[in-house]
Simulated assay, not measured.
Amino acid sequence: MGGHNTHGYAVVSAGGRTGGFLTVHTAWYQRLVGEVPPGLVLDHLCRNRWCVNPAHLEPVTSAENARRGARTKLTADQVESIRRRVGDGESQGAVARSIGISAPHISRIVSGHRWSPVPRAIERRHARLMPLVSSGQGGSESLASNGSRPSLALGKV
């Protein structure tokens, strides 16, 4: 039996009375690729929460997944620029005003409490895939030809 969770991801029963639920994309990833490494979550590179294509899923830390999310205001390049500008002597307030975010947020970025260093390889891969999503080429496998959501029969997960 399936449905969706409070975050909008499709879920399927993990089996048994106390098995709970597992997101469908995680179930498919585990079936086709293998277990998600401990401490990591799956990021939908295509930004489509219903997509189950393992090529569109990447195991990342929760922090990296949040950085890539739709609500993220800054890119890794902007964060590097903020750190460089403050390091060169520009005031945090001036940097904050020029970008349109709060000075306390600049302080958290500079101190490393927000936006810990981003591995450049991950950032480059993410940037390479985003044009596919914007052009409508990514994530289409997760929709039926009529635009409806697929019904998935996973059996026991």
Rank of each mutant, 00 (worst) to 15 (best):
M1P: 08
T6W: 14
T6G: 07
H7F: 05
H7M: 12
G8R: 14
Y9T: 14
S13G: 06
A14G: 15
A14I: 08
G15K: 02
G16T: 07
R17Y: 10
T18H: 13
G19W: 03
G20L: 08
G20F: 05
V24G: 07
T26Y: 05
R31V: 15
L32C: 05
V33D: 00
V33G: 06
G34K: 07
G34L: 11
G34M: 05
E35V: 04
V36A: 05
V36Y: 00
G39L: 12
L40R: 10
D43M: 10
L45C: 06
C46H: 04
C46Q: 10
N48T: 04
W50S: 03
H56F: 10
L57V: 02
E58W: 03
P59W: 01
V60Y: 01
S62N: 09
A66T: 11
R68P: 05
R68W: 13
G69D: 02
A70G: 03
K73M: 15
L74H: 13
A76L: 08
D77M: 02
V79E: 00
E80Q: 13
I82K: 03
R83H: 11
R84H: 11
R85F: 05
V86W: 04
G87H: 01
D88Q: 07
Q92P: 12
A94N: 04
A94Y: 02
V95W: 01
V95N: 02
R97P: 05
I99S: 12
I99G: 14
S102Y: 05
S102K: 07
P104L: 07
P104F: 06
P104A: 11
R108N: 12
V110Y: 06
S111M: 14
G112F: 00
R114I: 15
W115A: 08
S116W: 15
P117H: 10
P117T: 14
P119C: 09
A121F: 05
R124L: 08
R125H: 13
A127D: 03
M130G: 10
P131R: 04
P131Q: 07
V133I: 06
V133R: 07
V133C: 12
S134E: 02
S135G: 14
G136D: 06
G136S: 09
G139A: 14
G139Y: 09
S140L: 12
L143W: 08
L143S: 02
A144T: 15
A144D: 09
N146Y: 11
S151E: 14
L152D: 11
A153G: 11
G155Q: 13
K156A: 14
V157Y: 09
